[in-house]
């Protein structure tokens, strides 16, 4: 028995959003009487943190603290339209829509504050802690809770805004094939190190080193977690999860539902390092591109290449099971003998 070490890499260019018939998302924002800002969306947070990121976008644009922003991803029957949470589009499309809505609401907020402070709205700024104040004269200020009350009960105004981001459908130029299907692309590279047991065919992933270029990382903590959680899913696809060999012909053996998939547990996790490169995208919210689906992608071919480097077996079907590795090693031995 020999443990064979190998190293491989793979890189990925990943589109943010999709083309099809156009790719829109809308957002509405309004202030409550208490000075909170409710962002209404139909977009869904699957757990990856969309609500946090769009709250950051709204707070930054309004100039208000995060605590003043309430994200309501209520109901696709009643909310402003969203194409959905897929194609790594949430941060980019919804973030842009929220920024547009928050800009409009901010203008009304400053108008109402200007009326109360008896100054020109163009001379006002926000301090980020909840106050609207006069530039150069920070004592002249009014809290958002008072601005909201004045708007509702004195001035009769709605501090609100509408936002939409529409990536229009794009067609290729027939002569050149040029087109803009996705508005921006994120890039990544993963280097994998594996160990292959040439007697059992078992592949162990020892380490993954990831570099991601994703525009601006709006929330670096969540980006890092997205990368490493996604890489774990990549490892899972690469060497564990399968409905084979019986799917779908027979349900007598093998997994019959998701809970019976083989998945790596905490003991199978490789060492990971992750680096985030920031090159802001001109059309992204504060420069962000999408990072989501792509995080599971690069580890898989990187692991396949590392297996090839370790034992010379080129696998093209996932998962890379002990059986497929051993068959590959046997085939190479037979080839060597017959040569």
């Amino acid at each position: 028995m020999t443990l064979l070490r190998g190293r491989g890499y793979a890189s990925v260019n990943y589109p943010t959003g999709m083309n099809l018939g156009g790719d829109p998302s809308q957002a509405l924002i309004h202030a409550t009487t208490m000075g909170g800002f409710v962002v209404s969306l139909s977009s869904v947070d699957l757990g990856q943190g969309l609500k946090t990121v769009v709250a950051q976008c709204a707070a930054e644009t309004l100039g208000m603290p995060m605590e003043n922003v309430i994200i309501d991803t209520a109901d696709t029957d009643t909310g402003p339209h969203c194409m959905g949470t897929f194609a790594s589009r949430g941060t980019h499309r919804v973030g842009n829509a929220v920024i547009m809505a928050a800009r409009e609401a901010r203008e009304v907020m400053l108008d109402v504050a200007a009326e109360e402070l008896e100054v020109d709205a163009g001379d006002l700024e926000t301090d980020g802690t909840g106050y609207v104040r006069l530039k150069g004269s920070p004592e002249t200020k009014i809290h958002i809770s008072e601005v909201a009350l004045a708007a509702h009960f004195k001035q009769g105004k709605s501090i609100s805004g509408r936002g939409i981001y529409l990536k229009e459908r794009n067609y290729p130029v027939p002569e050149t094939g040029e087109m803009d299907p996705d508005s921006c692309q994120a890039h990544a590279c993963t280097v994998a190190e594996v160990e292959v047991d040439d007697e059992t065919g078992v592949v162990t992933v020892l380490s993954l080193h990831n570099t991601y270029e994703i525009g601006r990382a709006l929330n670096p903590g969540m980006v890092a977690q997205q990368i490493e959680g996604g890489a774990w899913m990549g490892v899972s696809h690469a060497i564990f999860e399968s409905t084979e060999p019986y799917y779908p012909a027979s349900r007598d053996h093998g997994p019959v539902d998701f809970s019976e998939y083989l998945m790596p547990g905490p003991a199978e996790i490789p060492v990971q390092t992750s680096v985030i490169l920031e090159r802001p995208a001109s059309n992204g919210p504060f420069g962000a591109k999408g990072i989501g689906e792509m995080t599971a992608n690069a580890p898989i071919p990187a692991i396949a290449n590392a297996i090839f480097d370790a034992c010379g077996v080129r696998l093209t079907t996932m998962p890379f099971t002990p059986e497929s590795v051993l068959r590959g090693i046997d085939a190479r031995r037979d080839d060597a003998l017959s040569a």
Binding site: G47, G229, W232, M233, P266
Partner: peptide
Amino acid sequence: RDEVNEAISGNVCRCTGYEPIV
């Protein structure tokens, strides 16, 4: 670290990749 891995081996996480939990 191995004992931690063992202790949470009955708890499935599909998001984090376990590392931050451990």
